[in-house]
């Protein structure tokens, strides 16, 4: 479960002054559901997700992840979160196994428990064939699977995906989309950001439209359709943004 309350992040820029990248955002994501954060480039999607993953600290407002406050208990929050984006790269000189084991150990997994978990994930994600190959020698699709194993090693109840299919080819993107669906079927809370309408339409149970740091509209696809009178998500998005501008 994720609950964001008036979540705000202001960046100070010498030339541009204060920039409100995330401006008083409120939303809830339920376990077993996928919440899609839809917005154009620079809308505030990545900043929102980084706040939830405790990579950034909010300027004001807060969020609770599995009941833990991102301001007060960031370490416990991180232990409950798996964060995946195209920016979360792997250590190229480590093998797939070493990478996953490293993040497992950082989570407190050791010995047989760690080995069992790694084997389980490698079997699930079909990593076995290249488990002992260095990450910089893997294809993009293989790297994505290792990244997924890395995010899942501690079996987090909350998954955060920041434009996870950006720049990937069709096959690699399908692996990710399939994985996001699996997370939902396993009862995890999933939040996902994208500017690709079709992806959001396919995957998400709830959609939030973010523009210039503000959450302009949110609800199920059916609710958004009803509210705007538009059937297509792209039209819903454009209309919502235009009304706000």
């Amino acid at each position: 479960m994720i609950e964001a309350t008036h979540l705000t992040k202001v960046f100070s820029d010498r030339k541009r002054g204060d920039i409100r990248a995330v401006d008083g955002v409120d939303f809830r994501c339920q376990p077993g559901g996928i919440y899609g954060l839809l917005g154009a480039n620079g809308a505030g999607k990545t900043t929102t997700l980084r706040l939830l993953a405790t990579i950034l600290q909010p300027t004001s407002g807060t969020a609770r992840v599995c009941g833990f406050d991102i301001r007060e208990q960031p370490e416990i929050v991180r232990a409950h979160v798996g964060f995946l984006s195209t920016a979360t790269a792997l250590y190229g000189r480590l093998t797939a196994r070493e990478t996953v084991e490293y993040f497992g150990r950082l989570n407190g997994l050791t010995g047989d428990k760690l080995r069992r978990r790694v084997e389980e994930l490698f079997a699930l994600l079909e990593i076995g064939a290249f488990a002992d190959r260095r990450c910089d020698k893997l294809s993009t699709g293989m790297k994505q699977r290792v990244s997924i194993a890395r995010t899942l090693v501690h079996d987090p109840p909350v998954m955060i995906f920041d434009e996870p299919t950006l720049g990937l080819d069709v096959m690699a993107a399908r692996t990710i989309v399939g994985f996001i669906r699996d997370c939902r079927s396993h009862g995890k809370t999933v939040i996902f950001s994208s500017h690709v309408m079709s992806e959001v339409q396919k995957l998400c149970d709830h959609v939030g439209i973010i523009h210039q740091g503000k959450l302009l509209a949110q609800g199920t696809l059916a609710e958004l359709r009803q509210r705007t009178g538009q059937a297509d998500l792209e039209e819903i998005f454009v209309q919502t943004v235009e009304v706000a501008s």
């Binding site: 993953a53 405790t54 990579i55 370490e75 991180r78 232990a79 409950h80 979160v81 798996g82 964060f83 984006s85 920016a87 979360t88 790269a89 792997l90 250590y91 190229g92 993040f103 950082l106 989570n107 407190g108 890395r150 501690h154 987090p156």
Partner: peptide
């Protein structure tokens, strides 16, 4: 440069400061 900083910062650091 390699983009691993976000990976390590976002890693679930259970008890690891």
């Amino acid at each position: 440069e390699r983009g691993t900083i976000e990976t390590i910062l976002a890693s679930p650091v259970n008890g690891v400061h």
